[in-house]
């Protein structure tokens, strides 16, 4: 939802490590993060904050399972779900990157591939069969005919 960006962030994890780089917190072990309608689960989550202390970058890395992110783009839209070995959430751009074994379920469509990028507030999705580190997985999509606007 639009209100997500300004919603408070709750995080639960086995343990917390502060990274001396300015403002980077690293949560390890069965991490669950929630901000408004957005929810994130992963084995390890790194949160960077900008000068004003607002969250600028969230990097979630799956351990035994893939990292998972879900979010409700609009009240009447179905929940959008995304998986990836690594999930990066760019707060300022409201942009999410799902990297390696990426999978996105959005509005009846599904994307699978090496890399999927999508924008939380826009229906903009981009899937590719390569990622920077050379892992390859062809993009496979399931399109449902009556896609809700």
């Amino acid at each position: 939802l639009e209100s997500d960006a300004s919603a408070p962030i709750e995080i639960a994890a086995d343990r917390l490590e502060l990274d001396n780089r300015a403002g980077t917190a690293v949560y390890i072990g069965d991490v669950e993060m929630q901000q408004g309608s957005m929810k994130l689960t992963a084995g390890r989550v790194e949160i960077e904050r900008n000068g004003q202390g607002e969250v600028s970058l969230v990097t979630a890395i799956g351990e035994s399972e893939r990292a998972y992110l879900e979010q409700k783009p609009a009240p009447e839209d179905p929940i959008v779900r995304g998986w990836g070995r690594t999930v990066i959430y760019h707060a300022d751009q409201r942009r999410v990157e799902l990297i390696n074994q990426a999978e996105l379920h959005q509005g009846g469509d599904t994307f699978r591939g090496a890399y999927v990028e999508y924008f939380l507030d826009r229906r903009q999705v981009q899937a590719r069969s390569e990622t920077g580190d050379g892992e390859r997985e062809r993009v496979r999509m399931t399109l449902t005919p009556q896609r809700t606007q």
Binding site: R123, R128, V139
Partner: peptide, 18 residues
């Protein structure tokens, strides 16, 4: 009715096309 695809890349265009 279900449509499956496989490709090197896939994206939504501005006008909502795929």
């Amino acid at each position: 009715e279900q449509i499956l695809s496989s490709s090197d890349s896939a994206e939504y265009g501005e006008a909502g096309e795929t």
